[in-house]
């Protein structure tokens, strides 16, 4: 398992660079993840990240983009604006949870 040093901490990540253990996550780490992928975190970004962490804990898997949208009430279009390009993967990375497995 590769490890890397982010925000002054040595952390284990998977082969793609996602945090291996979601329990290692802290807000400080999340903020640094976001900075490293070029996302400027606003309160809305944090709201999504908190939802992802909470939903992952409750459901045992990372929510898909559709679930994020229906559960938080944030339109899909806005998710693409907040996390451009690959929103589902980017928000999962910042939240320190695995990338979503669901198809829709």
């Amino acid at each position: 398992m590769p490890s890397t040093t982010i925000a002054g901490r040595q952390i284990d990540v998977n082969e793609e660079g996602f945090l291996s253990n979601p329990d290692d996550w802290t807000e400080e780490l999340g903020a640094e993840f976001a900075r490293l992928i070029g996302v400027d975190m606003s309160e809305e970004h944090w709201k999504l990240v908190r939802f992802l962490r909470q939903d992952y804990k409750a459901m045992g898997e990372t929510p898909t983009l559709r679930r994020v949208s229906t559960q938080t009430g944030m339109p899909v279009k806005q998710l693409f604006t907040l996390f451009p390009g690959k929103p589902a993967k980017k928000m999962a990375y910042v939240a320190g949870v695995p990338k979503p497995k669901g198809c829709v």
Partner: peptide, 8 residues
């Protein structure tokens, strides 16, 4: 030294 980050 450079953090290992997913290439999105």
């Amino acid at each position: 030294e450079t953090p290992f980050v997913p290439s999105f």
